[in-house]
């Protein structure tokens, strides 16, 4: 018990004294997760919107695949990208394995299904409400899609935040394709895993506290945005 408390004390010291190693890891995590969320969101959002509105053969199968990808163990996703990006793999000549870009790719791949699934739900619900009125006004499909995306923009922004949360809390895939290289591909989650296994609890705890803080802040922001938009727009 005493050891945990003293570790916690040292951890808070690391945070408040702006330990360079710790903050380097934190910034890299945030940077990569933001980029991954933007890329994954840019792919998942239109995918979810199309599946939510359009009716085409194979739509149900696509929904099942997307939902299944939500539950895919991220280590397996990491393994797939490891094989793709490794020297002998089909994308090996890009030389991306064990670089931050590899981390972004794996994270983005994990963000796509969650953003697509949440977007589909949001768009489908809105479409169920709007469809008849829109058809009555003579709104064409392209305009209907634009209108739905614009009308649900605040909710969709919180979907993007959920994507960021997914990317930032990811361990397995990031470990496999990033390699957890000190100063290059070591992010919060992989650092926590490593330091804990080495027994360096203060650094692990310090990072853990910050990671929880980020996740809390993101969720609070999402909640605030939803509340505000409900009050403002109904």
């Amino acid at each position: 018990m005493f050891e945990i408390l003293s570790s916690f004390e040292i951890a808070l010291g690391l945070i408040t004294h702006a330990d360079a190693e710790l903050w380097g890891i934190v910034w890299l995590s945030i940077e990569l997760s933001v980029v991954a969320a933007v890329i994954g969101g840019a792919m998942g959002l239109p995918l979810g919107a199309i599946v939510g509105i359009a009716r085409f053969p194979g739509r149900r199968a696509l929904i099942v695949v997307l939902n299944a990808m939500l539950g895919l163990p991220s280590v397996v996703v990491g393994l797939v990208f490891y094989l793709l990006l490794s020297r002998a793999g089909p994308l090996g000549e890009w030389g991306l394995l064990f670089t931050p870009k590899a981390i972004v790719i794996a994270q983005a791949a994990l963000v796509v299904p969650i953003v697509a699934a949440l977007t589909r739900q949001v768009i489908e619900d809105a479409w169920a409400e709007y469809a008849e009125q829109m058809r009555s006004l003579g709104v064409g499909t392209a305009r209907a899609v634009r209108t739905l995306l614009w009308d649900t923009r605040f909710t969709l922004f919180t979907v993007g935040l959920a994507g960021f949360g997914r990317a930032a809390s990811e361990v397995g895939a990031v470990m496999v394709v990033g390699g957890n290289i000190d100063g290059v591909t070591r992010v919060m989650t992989t650092a926590i895993a490593l330091e804990t296994s080495k027994g360096d609890l203060p650094l692990a705890l310090g990072l853990g506290v910050i990671l929880i803080g980020i996740v809390l802040a993101v969720n609070a922001a999402a909640y605030g945005i939803r509340e505000w938009s409900a009050r403002r727009h109904g």
Binding site: Q133, L137, G138, T147
Partner: peptide
């Protein structure tokens, strides 16, 4: 039950006019 877009009352009418 009227279905209104998440925008102002005026913009809702303008939207219908734009579509037309």
């Amino acid at each position: 039950r009227p279905v209104m877009l998440r925008r102002s009352a005026l913009a809702n009418v303008e939207y219908a006019l734009a579509v037309a």
